[in-house]
């Protein structure tokens, strides 16, 4: 298959049926009826929030906006558009007064450290609201960022369930469009909005459209790196993505437990989370 022939299109009605069913099943069998979603103003969280509202009813979803003082006003407005359109419950919690004391304590903090602190502070708020609202945190990480490790461990990757983690960014956009997410949210350059002018594609060094096709061949179709180059991808690009996926495996697994006994969590104590439900 040549890279131009890679087709990531999905059947949106089928995806919607499976993913709303998943959200409903995995939340209700744990004894909950409600969901909490961190709404950034981007397409991933807009889609997760939409799916949660479809699965549980808008009144059972709490969308939380968590701006920092440098966050763009556009992000906040776009998040509000989603809240208004879906009719979900909402809350805005500014993280500036929570994270600034730590930044002041370590003034040498670089952008990455500060970004991680902000992502983890948002996780703390979402998990606190999970208790206050009596709902589970629905994740917003897509397959592209999970594979590339473009995420903060115990930060934006933290959730109780993730409906969109097996959709590439390209597919997230397609499904979001079909479910009525405002086009301005789908079409703007994706950004973690941790500092001014930051964009995902600028940081990664390639576009989602390009890397999604490569990941599809590498991961879904089990192409070797050499076969990906034959399909038309640049050698340096292929090697950097392969290495990035490998290097970030630690973000995709639970921390290893040193085995001592005959039965150890993670190795030979094996149950699904849905055990008994």
């Amino acid at each position: 298959m040549l890279k131009e022939q890679v087709d990531l299109a999905i059947h949106v009605e089928l995806a919607k049926r499976i993913l709303t069913g998943f959200i409903h099943s995995e939340i209700t069998r744990m004894g909950f009826q409600r969901a909490v979603v961190g709404l950034s103003g981007g397409v991933d969280s807009a889609l997760s929030c939409t799916l949660a509202a479809l699965a549980l009813g808008a009144e059972n979803v709490l969308a939380v906006r968590m701006p920092y003082r440098t966050s763009s006003s556009e992000s906040l407005e776009h998040a509000q558009m989603v809240i208004d359109q879906l009719g979900v419950q909402s809350l805005t919690v500014e993280i500036t007064p929570m994270v600034e004391p730590l930044f002041e304590r370590f003034p040498e903090m670089n952008a990455m450290r500060r970004g991680n602190v902000m992502a983890r502070q948002r996780m703390i708020i979402l998990y606190d609201q999970s208790v206050a609202f009596n709902g589970l945190v629905v994740g917003t990480g897509n397959k592209t960022e999970i594979l590339l490790g473009y995420t903060t461990l115990y930060g934006d990757s933290a959730c109780a369930l993730n409906p969109i983690g097996d959709l590439y960014k390209t597919q997230v956009r397609q499904l979001a469009r079909a479910l009525g997410v405002p086009p301005v949210i789908i079409e703007k350059p994706p950004t973690a909005d941790l500092w001014k002018g930051q964009t995902d594609e600028g940081e990664l060094g390639y576009t989602y459209a390009e890397v999604d096709k490569l990941l599809y061949l590498l991961v879904d179709q089990r192409y070797t790196p050499a076969e990906c180059m034959e399909a038309g991808f640049d050698e340096g690009f292929v090697h950097s993505v392969v290495e990035r996926v490998r290097r970030n495996q630690f973000k995709r697994v639970l921390p290893p437990i040193a085995k001592l006994s005959n039965r150890t969590v993670g190795y030979d104590f094996l149950y699904l989370r849905d055990w008994g439900t």
Binding site: D7, A9, I10, H11, E13, L14, A15, I18
Partner: peptide
């Protein structure tokens, strides 16, 4: 377990 989501209306 269903797998293989494409543009087709069935897995």
């Amino acid at each position: 377990p269903g797998r293989g989501l494409t543009s087709n209306d069935r897995l």
